[in-house]
């Protein structure tokens, strides 16, 4: 059951990314290109995605997940240096290539060699993140 639901969720996510145009880097970079040919599509995608998720969060109240267990509680650590530094680094990469983790996987079959190299570099970055994060913690503590 858990695996079937994962497959359905992943497929819906991938279909949505495909149809919305969010695997097209010109549309993502178009959203960020305020001083160029600005493209508002990303805002509609975000809005369209947030509405069903808002309803879903409301439905979690007083209930349990279908497969059992508990719903995730809001994380204890609020706004820290990791959230800010990490988001800035992510945003820099997102602006450079117009790809983020979800669309990079969704577009692998038609993204060409560039898409494969991006995902490979992203996986290397994810592997290096714990060590880099620890270093950022030390700098922040100093």
């Amino acid at each position: 059951m858990r695996l079937l639901l994962s497959l359905i969720a992943g497929s819906l996510f991938g279909t949505g990314l495909f149809l919305s145009g969010m695997t097209d880097t010109t549309k993502v970079q178009g959203w960020l290109d305020v001083f160029g040919n600005w493209d508002p599509t990303l805002a509609f995608v975000m809005g369209g995605a947030i509405i069903p998720m808002m309803i879903a969060w409301q439905l979690t109240r007083g209930r349990h997940p279908l497969v059992g267990g508990e719903f995730p509680t809001p994380p204890k650590h609020e706004i820290g240096h990791r959230l800010v530094v990490g988001s800035v680094l992510f945003g820099m990469g997102w602006g450079l290539a117009g790809l983020c983790p979800g669309p990079s996987i969704a577009s692998l079959s038609y993204g060409g060699a560039g898409g494969l190299v991006f995902v490979a570099a992203m996986l290397v970055g994810m592997g290096a993140a714990p060590a880099i994060g620890a270093r950022i913690d030390r700098i922040a503590a100093a």
Binding site: G16, M22, T60, V67, E70
Partner: peptide, 17 residues
């Protein structure tokens, strides 16, 4: 497309938590 993405998120949350 956005609504489908949100639906996927809803399935993952309400189904698997």
């Amino acid at each position: 497309g956005g609504a489908l993405i949100g639906l996927g998120g809803a399935v993952y949350l309400l189904g698997n938590g």
